[in-house]
Simulated assay, not measured.
Amino acid sequence: MDTPVDETTLGFESEGEDSEMSDEEIQEAFAKGLLKPGLNIPVEEPKKFVNNTVGMKQCLAEFRRGLPWVERLDLSNLPVPDIVAKAEGRLVPSDSEAVNAEDDFQREMYFYRQAQASVLEALPKLQKLNIPTKRPDDYFAELTKTDQHMQKIRKKLLIKQTAMEKSEKAKKLRELRKYGKKVQVEVLQKRQKEKKAMMSAVKKYQKGMTDKLDFLEGDEDKSKKGAGPSKAQMNKKGPNAKRKYKDKRFGFGGKKKGTKWNTKESHNDMSGFRPKVAHGKGGKTFGKGGKKGNKRPGKEARRKMKGRK
C-alpha cells in the first residue's frame, strides 16, 4: 500500500496556491519515489447540498405581506377542460405531469387553457369588488418603446411602402407597354388588311371587273353618319349655288389649251390688221425720237416700289 506523500516535504504550498518547485527538486523527488502517477491530479470533493429549511421559511414569511387580494391578484388553478378534444374523442391529459414538454402545441395549449381558467375565476371576483374589467374608449396606454425607436420603425415602414408602390407602378407600366404594343400591332395589321383590300379593289376596277368606286371614300366617311353628304353624293345631286353662279358669269368652260394657235385661215385673214398700230404710229402719244412718253420703270425700280407698299 502506497504511503501518503507529505506536501510539505515536496515543497508544495497550501491548497489554492501555485507550486514553485524547480525542475531539479521534482527530479530528485521522483528519484526517491516520492512522486507517483495520479498523485498530482486534483480530486474534487462532492458538493454538499444544504437544506436550510429555517432560512426558506423566514424568506417566505418576509414575502407574505398583509395585502388584500386586489393588490396581489394571485390565482392558483388547473387549466379548463379541452372541450374541442373531448368533442373529437381525443385523450386529454388532466394534469401538468401528463403534458409532454417537448410537444410545443400541447404545451402552449396547456398554458392557454390555464389562462382561461384564471380569467373565469378572476372576473367574478373583480366584478364583485366593483372593479372595471373593460378598457374605456378614451384610454391611451403609454408605449414601452421610445419615440426615437418608433420613428425608426415608421421610417422603415415608409421606405418599404414606397418600394412596394414603385414596384406596383413599374408592373403597371410594363403591362401598359405590353398592351400598347398589342394595340399597335393590331392597328398595323388592320391597316395592312385595308390596304390589301383597297389594292385588290383598284385592280378589279382597272381590269373592268367592277364599276364601283366605294373604296375611294375610305372607312372614315363610311363610319361618319350624319356628318354631311360625301363628294360622290354631292356630284349626283348637281352643282351648288356658287358653281352655278360662276358658270352663268364665266361660261361653262371648254377647250382652252391650243386655242391661240395659228391656222391656215387665221394666217391669211388680214381683216384685223392695222398698220398704224403695228408700226408704232397709232393714236398713242409718243415723245422725242418716236419713243413712248410713258416709259415703264426698270426692274430694280419696280422692286423698290413694291417694297414700299
Rank of each mutant, 00 (worst) to 15 (best):
N294I: 09
A301L: 04
E17P: 01
S200A: 09
A232M: 15
D247T: 13
Y245K: 13
K260N: 15
L143M: 07
E186L: 01
L10R: 00
K190R: 13
D23T: 12
T259L: 07
R65H: 11
L67Y: 05
E44G: 06
Y179E: 15
G208R: 08
T3K: 04
Q148L: 03
K276E: 14
K276C: 02
K256W: 03
I26D: 02
L173W: 05
R191W: 08
E71C: 05
S19H: 09
M56G: 05
K246Q: 03
K309N: 08
V84P: 02
Y245H: 12
K203I: 02
L34S: 01
M164Q: 11
M164T: 14
R135Q: 04
G287T: 08
K242A: 13
P229S: 06
G293S: 15
P46Y: 06
L216H: 03
F30P: 00
R64K: 12
P229I: 10
D221Y: 00
P297D: 04
K171G: 10
D247R: 07
F63S: 09
K237I: 09
L143I: 07
A31C: 01
S200P: 00
R135N: 09
K203D: 15
S96D: 14
L78N: 14
K181Q: 10
M21W: 05
K304N: 07
P46S: 12
S76V: 14
K304Y: 04
K257I: 12
A141C: 14
K299T: 11
E142G: 03
Q114A: 14
T144N: 12
R65I: 06
K295T: 08
V50E: 07
G218W: 03
E108L: 12
S94Y: 02
E186W: 02
L143Q: 10
K195F: 10
V99E: 05
E88R: 05
N294A: 10
V50Y: 04
M234E: 11
I131L: 02
Q127A: 06
K292S: 11
K288Y: 06
E194F: 08
E102N: 02
K203R: 13
P42C: 02
I83R: 14
E25A: 15
I41C: 03
N268D: 15
F252Y: 08
Q114P: 01
E175P: 00
V43G: 05
K178E: 14
I131C: 12
E17H: 09
I26K: 01
L91M: 10
K284Q: 04
A141V: 11
R174I: 03
K212N: 05
I83F: 03
N51D: 14
K204I: 04
E45F: 01
R64Q: 11
R296T: 10
E7F: 06
K224H: 13
M199A: 15
E20L: 13
R65W: 03
D23R: 13
M1W: 12
P46A: 10
R107M: 07
K231S: 07
K281Q: 12
G208L: 05
K86D: 06
F215T: 00
R249C: 01
I153H: 03
M1T: 15
F215R: 00
D104V: 05
A98I: 03
K172G: 04
R303G: 06
R243E: 12
H267S: 10
